[in-house]
Amino acid sequence: METPVETYEAPLTPKNELILTPEAQSYLLTAGKWATFLGILGFIFCGLFLLLALSMGTIMSKVASMQPYNPATAMMAGMGGGLTAVYVLLDLLYFFFALYLYQFATKIKAAINFSDSIQLTAGLKKLKSFFKLWGIVTIVIIALYVLGIICVIAFAASMGAAMHQ
């Protein structure tokens, strides 16, 4: 009677497991320190910009009162509320840039200091969110530039046609 041949099966492990070398960890830790600095600076500038945004209506009204006979300053005073709204929205957008950067920094530093792969993943997720937001904003700005160029060309063409009549 034949004995069954036993076969060895290796445990299932990823073939290309990612390992962070000490040098890579040092780079991430340094990036985390700089991201902390830039995130905190971003929060400070968000606060200052918010103060400017909330003061915009008052500033525009004061400029208009200094030149009561200038129709341009009267128009600027009327735009104070709109500028405040635009500035608050821009400040909110900038806040998320600072927030994602700061969250990346805190999670990456914790991941490296405590060898925590869950924190590393969470930190890299925040970095991904930061760059995704940056990409979306860049696409919107490029689209606005293209739209602006098209409007200028259309306006110039209509002015040229009007001049030839």
Rank of each mutant, 00 (worst) to 15 (best):
P22R: 06
M76K: 02
Q67D: 12
A161L: 13
T84Y: 06
W34T: 12
Y102A: 00
G47T: 02
A10F: 02
P14L: 11
L18Y: 12
G123Q: 03
K125Y: 09
P71C: 05
Y94N: 09
A157L: 15
L120M: 02
T13E: 11
I153Y: 07
Y87M: 15
E9D: 09
S61M: 07
K132G: 02
M56Y: 08
F43M: 06
G57W: 02
E17H: 09
C151Y: 14
K33D: 13
G78M: 04
F114C: 08
Q25G: 00
M159A: 10
L12G: 05
A156N: 07
I59D: 00
A10L: 02
M66G: 04
K132R: 03
E6S: 05
G148V: 10
S158P: 04
F45A: 03
L52M: 10
T3A: 11
V86H: 07
I108A: 05
N70K: 05
L133P: 02
N16S: 10
T36G: 14
Q103T: 03
Y100W: 14
I59C: 02
F155K: 05
P71E: 03
W34Q: 11
G148Y: 11
C151V: 15
A77L: 00
V88Y: 07
F45E: 01
Y145H: 13
Q165S: 03
L147S: 14
S129C: 03
E2F: 15
